[in-house]
Amino acid sequence: MTAVARHAGIAVRLALLAALAALALFPIALTVTNSFMSEREISHHYGALQSSDSSGEDAADMPTERVSIRWVPEVATLKAFGDVLLNRPKFLTLFWNSVRLTAPIVLGQTAVGTLAAYAFAKLVFPGRDKLFFLYLLTMLMPFQVTLVPNYLVAKQLGMLHSYGAIIWPGVFAAFGVFLMRQFAAGIPNSYLEAARIDGAGHFRSFFHIVLPLVKPGMTALMLLAFADNWNMVEQPLLFLTEPFRQPLSVYLAQIVSGEQGVAFASSVLYMTPMVLLFLYGEEQLVEGIQRSGVKG
């Protein structure tokens, strides 16, 4: 294979990847640009969507009229954002509902995951690997399969219609344990043995040796858990009946129903914390996934 052919092959692959990346980014970019459109412009361009929606027919009845996609607003305005932030107190309520659901899960899952990881990776006890496998089994099952048992358990515990029904299963999710175990497994046993010889107990070993070493993993877990739970839809729909206690993700799932301008703006606001957090922990996330992957 000549150098030219090799370069050409790389170019083709790059182009293909770029095209795929553009395809993936397309809805996000469209949402961002369209959030600056005025309501009038949006109803002008996407009026067909709205009218087919308001007629109350099945969602399968897609509008026959072609919807022209507009990239750049004719007049950029922050009106939609103003409308969402100033005139819709419910948006803010739902936003904080999301925070109140996600934050405990992220923190709890990280804490549980790290502690469990230490046990599964560094402690020796009978049936350890079988227990870990059993734990992993819940992760391998589709989430929807466990919904019904989760519901029944929540009912037995009297947690139905409360955030507890969502938060507790999230805190003990297997994914955190799995990720952190892979991470902790990468810590050489010699470190801990050395500490033990120096007289350190489990607490000291965990807090002074394991914890600093798994920090990138914790960050990665936090980001992944945040992304996972920030976007949850099924659990709130099942466990929370009152509309004003639902998180923002549920609202965004219903976004098709009218008011596209508001929908675009609230989508952008909804994405913002995730994007900022990802950028903030980008390095740790990549490092964490790499290390857990390589070592695991």
């Binding site: 932030l85 100033l86 107190p89 803010l92 309520t93 936003f95 904080w96 925070v99 913002t272 914390p273 900022l276 957090l277 950028l279 903030y280």
Partner: peptide, 17 residues
Amino acid sequence: ALRWALGLFFGGLLVLT
């Protein structure tokens, strides 16, 4: 900068709430 942006975002929403 990102820390500031995050702080401002959540702080701003808190004030608006």
